[in-house]
Simulated scan of single mutants.
Amino acid sequence: MPTLDDDHTGARIRDQRKLARLTQRELADRIPYSYSLLNQVECGARPATADFVAAVSHALQVDVTVLTGQPYVTELQRDRLAELVRPIRESLDLYDLGPNPDLVSRPESELVTAADKLCVEVRATHLRNAARELPGVIAELTHSAWSVPSTELWQALASTYRTAHDISVKLGYYDLAAVSLDRMDWAAQRASDPCLAAVRQYMRALVYFREGEYRIGQRLVASGHTMVGQADETREALAVTGQLHLGASVICARAEDKTAVDRHISEARKIAKRIGDASDVHHLSFGPTNVALHKMSAAVEMRQFDDALTQARKMKLPASLATSRRAHFLIDQARTEMETGHNDFALDHLVEARRMAPEQTRYHPGARETITSLVHLARRTPDTLNHMAAWVGL
């Protein structure tokens, strides 16, 4: 059976607590969780869930990534992904330099297609491919948008910035993700596109969701509704509105406001019933399936694990659902199975998530924390769990 070292989230929480000169009792008094749970998290017996980490980071006034250890540099270097991050960072700095006299870019139609393909790659969890292609597409679009400005080019450039954000988040580079969202706003303004601007607010809200600043997240969602309200009532605008409601549902779940959760899920369901599957709109995966997935996620966030498990086991995911969304569901279900005492099933779901989306699963904090807890809980660690623990670097 592998032994846990001190490089897990619970151990980092312990270290930061000691640096703040707080006892476990004193820290427990500052967060909405029990002393017993804090004790178990610090020793690795229970997962340091995203909501728990957010509460502790707020109480200790440290960034979430200090506690999670992101980005996971050792694994990133071994996978040769880290070397792909620097070109992305550099491409984001081109935004205000105007046309590049040394660059010959592809025609507008090809660049728009390339930007869309990057979104598809990320949702298929081909992070390495997307990260490799992204800087060049940003450079070409930046040059073209400055040379012969058009709404379509600015929209495509905003889309590539959104892809930079998505890749950065999945690899744990949250500083780079924040820069990407600023660039997305810059391009969306030049495109005069209220739907893109609203999508950006939705993504900003998720940043504060991770950080535990739920009130700010709710305000950003409200701002997104105001922006999309400036657009005509098209299928695109309705899908973005629905996704804003889904984002609000999980934020309100973290804030333990069940009434608000139910209201947002209800509004999203009405829109999904009206327009059906709209997963093609800005690659948000909006539709009836995503409403059901967010309802289950909200139950997980409110720690209603029996309810979440019932929903998860009844879920029938369509073949068309994006791989990234499917893998996220499996990781959520793994946590739910573990929390309800079904550790073998939890491991099965993590193995399936790894098979389906290896890069996303390896760098997903929830997957890593669930694996850590399964190792701690196991009397005899099966080979499969040993392999999973070694794979994520435990």
Results as ranks from 00 to 15, higher is better:
H225Y: 11
D277L: 04
A114Y: 01
I138W: 00
Q77N: 12
S249C: 13
A20W: 03
T381I: 01
R183C: 00
L347T: 09
K258L: 14
T310E: 12
P2R: 12
P318S: 07
T361A: 14
L127H: 05
T384M: 10
A198N: 03
Q243N: 15
T9G: 07
D7M: 11
A292N: 01
W186D: 07
K273E: 13
S279M: 05
P358Y: 07
L94V: 12
Y33A: 10
A278T: 04
T3I: 12
D193Q: 10
A389F: 10
C252F: 03
Y35F: 15
E108W: 08
A367I: 02
A158T: 08
T74W: 10
V228G: 04
H283G: 01
H264C: 05
S373D: 04
R210N: 11
S249L: 06
Y72V: 00
N386W: 14
D5N: 12
A178H: 02
R235V: 11
A268T: 06
M184I: 05
V120A: 09
V392C: 09
L111P: 04
Q230N: 09
Y72P: 00
G10Q: 00
H165N: 04
H245A: 07
H283R: 07
S373K: 04
R200K: 13
L118N: 00
W186C: 07
Y173I: 12
T113C: 05
T151K: 15
A299P: 02
W391A: 02
L374P: 00
D344K: 10
L293I: 13
E267L: 14
G247W: 02
G247L: 06
A11Y: 02
Q311W: 05
Y161F: 07
T361H: 12
A20L: 03
L244A: 14
H283F: 09
N290E: 11
V261N: 03
T381A: 01
L153F: 13
G98Y: 08
E90A: 11
P107S: 12
V64R: 01
T163P: 05
K170M: 14
S36I: 13
A145Q: 03
E152H: 05
G366W: 00
G10W: 00
A198V: 06
Y95K: 06
W186I: 08
A131L: 13
T340N: 15
A389C: 09
A158F: 04
D63N: 15
R183L: 00
A50R: 03
R215C: 11
E75R: 04
S168V: 03
T65R: 07
V53C: 02
Q189I: 14
R362C: 08
R200S: 08
E211T: 10
A55T: 10
R354S: 04
V221A: 08
L176E: 06
D232G: 11
M296Y: 09
A28L: 06
D166L: 09
R303G: 05
F305E: 01
Q189N: 11
M1K: 15
G224V: 08
D6I: 07
G217W: 00
L394K: 03
E267G: 06
E213Q: 14
T113A: 09
Q304M: 14
A11C: 07
A239R: 00
T68M: 14
P135C: 10
D15P: 01
I271A: 04
E233S: 15
C43Q: 12
R379L: 08
R46Q: 10
A334N: 01
A55D: 10
V250I: 15
Q360A: 08
R263D: 05
L118P: 00
S144I: 00
N129T: 15
L196R: 02
H376R: 06
T340V: 15
V375L: 10
